[in-house]
Amino acid sequence: MGLTYDAVGQADQAVAVFRNLLEDHPDHAPSCAKLGSILLRQHQYDEARQDLERAVALDPGSVEAHYQLGLLFRRLGKLNESEEQFAKSRKLEAERRAQSDLRLRLLLPE
């Protein structure tokens, strides 16, 4: 529902939905990351940072959370922190891609 609100341009409603969801399921990392990314778009940097850092803490393997955190730090002018997050997201994405290659190879034998 939050994603749908966001997709139709109703970001405030999306934020409300994700916040409600996180009250009931505070450990749901994807919702945390999505909420952080919407707040980043809305220039609510402090809150965005809080949610994105929480998303990373809940799921250190989240490419999205690290990437969005990198974008946030860039906008805050924190270039070193930004590059650190981008590096993590690149590494995680490369690992994800390698695992996906492996799965593909197992599914589609020579």
Binding site: S37, V63, E64, H66, Y67, Q68, G70, L71, R74, S82, E83, F86, S89, R90, E93
Partner: peptide, 14 residues
């Protein structure tokens, strides 16, 4: 590109 947000999708994927 990646640093300024116009290289990947919103999930950080190429």
């Amino acid at each position: 590109g990646s640093e300024i947000g116009c290289a990947l999708d919103g999930n950080g994927k190429a």
